[in-house]
Amino acid sequence: MSAIATPEPAAGAAQARKPRKRVPYVRQQKPTEGRRVKKSILLTIVMAIFVIYSVVPLIWLIVNATKDQGDLFSSFGLWFGSDFNLFQNIADTLTYRNGIFVQWFGNTLLYVVVGAGGATLLATLAGYGLAKFNFPGRRAVFAVVLGAVAVPGTALAVPTFLMFSQLGLTNTPWAVILPSLISPFGLYLIWTYAVDAVPTEILEAARMDGASEFRTFFTISLRLLSPGIVTVLLFAVVATWNNYFLPLIMLSEPTWYPLTVGLSQWSSQATGVAAQPIYNLVITGALLTIVPIVVAFLFLQRYWQSGLSAGSVKQ
C-alpha cells in the first residue's frame, strides 16, 4: 500500500511554486502589524460566536465539576447547583479507589515524557536527515511513511496486539510508548522546517572544519531547529496525552492506564449489576485531565506558533 503515493508530483508542484518564496527562514514581520487597520466591531462580534461555540462546552465542564451527583441530575447545565462542590469533587477524584487517578496521572506523564519526547527526537533526527542528506532509499522513506499513515490505526490494533503479546509487551508501559514514538506529522514538519532553517552552507563549513555530522547536528542544527522542535513536541504531547484506543487494547490492568482510559472506565462503571455511577468524578476528572495540557499550550504558545508558521511556508 505504500507504493501508491509517489512523491514526484509533489516535488514538481513545490518547485513550480518556488519563485514565490522569499528567504523563509528569516522571520517575517506580521504583515498587518505595521499598517494601521481599523478595528471592526462587526467582525469581532462574528468571531465572538466562534469563541462561544468553542468555549461553551468547556464552561459546561467547569460549571458541572462544581456539582455533586444529586445536583448534576437536578440543576440547569450551564449554571451552578445548590452547593459548590468543586473542591470536594477534586478531593474525591484524587482519592477514589486509593488515589488511582493520581496514578493514572503519573502514567500519563510517563507516556508523555518518554513517548512524546522520543517521538520528537526521532522525528527531528529523521526530518533533518531527509532534508539535509541525499541518501539511497530517501524516496522510499517518503512513500512508506505516507502510505502507512492512511491505514486505520484502530483496525491495526489487533495485529499490533497479537505481535506485542508474542513479545510479552502487552500490559507494560512499552505497549503504549513504542507506537507513540512515531509521529509522521512531526517528521514532515521538521523536514520542511529544516530545509531552510539550517542553511547548507553552515553545514558545509562545519564539515570543512572536520566536525562529525552528529556533532554538527547537536551543536549547530539543533538550535536552529528549536522553534520547529517545540511545535512538534507540543503536538506529540497532545497526541500522547489524548491517546485512548491503543492503551485501551494493550493494557488490562488499571495500574498502567493513562487518564483517558481510566476516565472511560469510570464512566462505564455506571452499567449493569452492581453499577456504581460516579458522574461527578468523571466530569471533575475530565476537567483535571485537560487543565495541564491547556496550561502547557498557553505558556508555550509563542514557540509553537512561530514553529508552525515556519513549517507552513513549505506547504
Binding site: A10, A131, F133, T192
Partner: peptide, 12 residues
C-alpha cells in the same frame, strides 16, 4: 505532506 521538495538537496 503534499509538496515536500525531495529535490531540494540535490546540489549536495
Amino acid at each position: 505532506m503534499a509538496s515536500v521538495t525531495l529535490t531540494q538537496s540535490r546540489p549536495m
